[in-house]
Amino acid sequence: MSTGTFADLDHRPAVSLADLNSAAALQTRTDRKYVVEAHRAVDAIEAFGAEVQVLEMAGRRTFAYDSVYFDTPALDSYLLAAHGRRRRYKIRTRTYVDSGISFLEVKTEGARAATVKERIPYEPSDSHRLTPAGLDYINETLACSIGSVPSGNLRPVIETAYRRITLYLPSSASRATLDLGVTWRRPGGQAHELDGAVIIETKSGSAASALDRHLWAYGIRPCRISKFATGMAALDPSLPANRWHRTVSTTLPLRPLSR
């Protein structure tokens, strides 16, 4: 399947999921994120001269993702992130729509702002709720990683959907993703799409990847964005945007979608 707007990537070598996970699993990693106008992102990727391989499965190179984020009624997870607390966490289900596979994931901040992601297989039919076994996993994981558990009942607070292209960079054994058509929706609310822009995310060790350095040379700088927290702040102006205020107000063009 074509990568669409990023047609140059159709001509790059493919990498299988098994090989990608073997070479760059990166469950503990440093993430750098960029919100980039679509045409600038295409130009920058086309001009990237280093070796790049594109994840391909069953002839596809673009894959649909659906994530549901959970928080307490007091929005503890969101507020911990908004105020930059060290022992913050995120809880979500992630569904790989094309393959019908889901995971329950717990993400925490490790040493030096590295993201630590742990996950277990989950039934797609349970993606919008937490089962007793799922809650046990969350509590055990958070008790071990940050020394505490959520103080209230966890419930869905926001859902994201997008199409993703995943790149492998052999020179740094790192990966990057291009997220297109990103949408956010609060429970029972209207969906909003990131209009005319894509999210580029690099996932590497502590050192910047060759793609990071290329984007910087291209005048594209990282920004603070979290699909969970920035989406919450963008859709609910009453929440403290704090770390994402500039992103929400200047670099996150949202367009409401018809119901």
Score class of each variant (00 low, 15 high):
T3C: 15
T3K: 00
T5N: 03
D8A: 12
L17W: 02
D19N: 13
D19T: 14
T28C: 11
T30G: 04
R32I: 11
R32Q: 11
K33D: 07
V35P: 03
V35H: 11
A38R: 15
A38Y: 00
A41P: 04
V42R: 14
A44H: 05
I45D: 01
Q53N: 01
L55S: 04
M57D: 03
A58C: 00
A58V: 00
F63Q: 01
Y65F: 14
Y65V: 06
D71I: 04
D71K: 04
T72S: 15
A74N: 08
D76F: 00
A81F: 02
A81W: 08
A82W: 05
G84E: 05
R86S: 13
I91D: 02
R92N: 03
D98K: 01
D98S: 03
S99W: 03
G100K: 01
F103M: 10
F103A: 06
E105S: 04
K107P: 04
E109Y: 06
A113D: 07
A114H: 12
A114M: 15
E118D: 13
I120C: 00
P124I: 07
S125E: 12
D126R: 11
H128W: 09
L130Q: 07
L130C: 08
L135W: 00
D136M: 13
D136R: 14
L142Y: 07
A143N: 13
S145P: 00
I146L: 02
G147F: 03
V149W: 04
S151W: 08
G152S: 01
N153I: 10
V157W: 03
A161K: 15
A161H: 14
Y162G: 04
R164P: 03
T166K: 02
Y168I: 01
L169D: 04
P170Y: 08
P170K: 05
S171N: 13
S171I: 10
S174Q: 02
S174A: 15
A176W: 06
T177A: 00
L178T: 02
L178P: 08
L180H: 06
T183R: 11
W184F: 12
P187N: 03
Q190A: 14
Q190G: 05
Q190N: 04
H192D: 13
L194I: 10
V198D: 07
I199V: 15
E201L: 02
K203R: 14
S204H: 09
G205L: 09
S206N: 09
A208R: 15
S209V: 08
L211S: 13
D212C: 09
R213K: 14
H214L: 06
G219W: 04
I220E: 05
R221Y: 12
C223T: 15
G231L: 07
M232H: 08
D236L: 07
D236S: 13
P237V: 07
P237E: 06
P240G: 09
N242D: 14
R243Q: 02
W244P: 04
T247A: 09
V248Q: 08
S249L: 15
T250W: 01
T251E: 09
S258I: 05
R259G: 13
